[in-house]
Design a protein around this nucleic acid. Structure first.
Length: 210
DNA sequence: TAGTTGATCGTCT
DNA sequence: GACGATCAACTAA
């Protein structure tokens, strides 16, 4: 393990209601093994996508070849390719055939920052906040792409871990980003005041309604 | 700092 | 054939 205090979350963590899993993912650690090295980032921003009842979800129109992983048992990684050049990573939730998931939107780098910078090449400039403060950025920094689609998050290649003895962080919520439907739901959660959140500084975007 | 735009291609209509 | 759960470079002020 990268840090002795980090322990992978059990399958049961992911099988719970999706909004509960989304909130509980904040403050947990995304851990990626690359050979003998580990990349670690604290999860600070997520969005929930609620399957067939959510028009913004890839699973809204049912299972396809693309979103097949979304319908697996909770605790798998759903990676999709978008805008012709970017990958985004989701944590699948609930039992098999539900089609719900949580998009990882931002992490705070904790370990392996040098490798993250190399993976992101020169695109971050001198601003370290650009390293992992967006869903496609963190995938690039953690070397997550097509091959990682369907990975089991209970380990050992890619895991979500808790840190023993750590308290949950203060949360905030807002509407989701980058969608054109389902915009009335505040299903984006982030760590209040954390500087690694992708947008709107430390403040929530003005929400319309629940 | 805010707003605009080009890049680039798999997926679904 | 249109369009994305995005990003980075650019412009204007």
């Amino acid at each position: 393990m990268p840090l002795p205090s980090l322990h992978p979350l059990p399958r049961s963590f992911y099988l719970r209601p999706t909004l509960t899993v989304a909130k509980d993912l904040l403050g947990k650690y995304l851990v990626r093994r690359i050979g003998k090295e580990y990349l670690v980032g604290k999860i600070v921003e997520v969005e929930a996508y609620l399957g067939k009842r959510d028009p913004a979800s890839h699973a809204y129109r049912g299972k396809t070849k693309r979103n097949e992983v979304m319908f697996r048992e909770g605790g798998h990684l759903y990676v999709y390719f978008t805008y012709g050049m970017h990958f985004c990573a989701n944590v699948v939730t609930r039992p098999e055939d539900t089609g719900e998931a949580v998009l990882l939107r931002a992490v705070e780098p904790v370990q392996g920052i040098g490798m993250m910078k190399r993976l992101r090449r020169k695109k971050t400039g001198r601003n370290e906040r650009e390293l992992t403060n967006g869903p496609a950025k963190l995938c690039e920094a953690f070397s997550i792409g097509r091959k990682e689609n369907g990975t089991d998050l209970t380990g050992p290649e890619i895991m979500v871990c808790r840190r023993r003895g750590e308290r949950p962080p203060p949360l905030a919520r807002s509407t989701r980003i980058g969608i054109s439907v389902g915009t009335r739901h505040r299903w984006r959660y982030f760590v209040r005041g954390n500087g690694w959140v992708s947008r709107y500084g430390v403040l929530p975007r003005p929400a319309v309604t629940d």
